[in-house]
Amino acid sequence: MSRLRKTELAKVGFGLIVAMIVTALGCAILALPGEESGLAGAVMLNLDQAGAKNPVTAVLLNFRGYDTLLEIAVLLLAVLGARALAVDESADDSEHFRSSINPVLIGFIRVIAPVMIIVAGYLLWVGGHAPGGAFQAGAVLASLGVLLVLADINWTQHLSDYSERILLTISLVVFLSVGLATMFNARNFLEFSPSTAKWCILLIEAVATVSIAVILLALFCCGKISNARKYHETTRGRVE
């Protein structure tokens, strides 16, 4: 009973602390200047040099492209971590029990898959001048991959672990290479010339779409796309 009391007290006490933090932050927000353009002016001024008409894409891939490079490395790290933690799924027989494949799901995928691929391509292209880009496109492709895994459609059959690792890292490799390639023209790392910036950005984004899709799908499958296959094999064997 006293222990219960103690946890209740801790909750109330901590709640008060959080309320104080929230109040202080709220006052700080209210005290901020009402109008402040930040770096919007500088971005707009340099936008025609940046190779993308969409200011957000220009910031992501050009002005602050280095952040994006590191952030793809962060995604890759999550896959590395998931791979380090994955255990052999085939040894497991309690989880992922699948009685049968849902025919409605299969039918749905038949309709939705082509649309999703087109949407991903559109998002990638439109990112140049309107909201969109590699991450959005990659997320759409990855969700298509998740649907395929759920429907037990075995499209990764011919994908070896080696090629999977290449797909996971290809965007970092391309990003780094493009960045280094710009240095041959006596420019800085990741300094695109205004004339080629558009194509550099498109190349990086296109490859990033693939890598991001594969990375997100791999995260869904515990770090390895081939894991999905493995657990279907075991569960199907059991159902039959």
Binding site: E36, A40, V43, P55
Partner: peptide, 16 residues
């Protein structure tokens, strides 16, 4: 906070 710009376009840097 990115929407406090004087014009109608928000500051893109926080969006990124």
């Amino acid at each position: 906070l990115a929407r406090r710009t004087p014009g109608d376009r928000p500051d893109p840097v926080p969006h990124a």
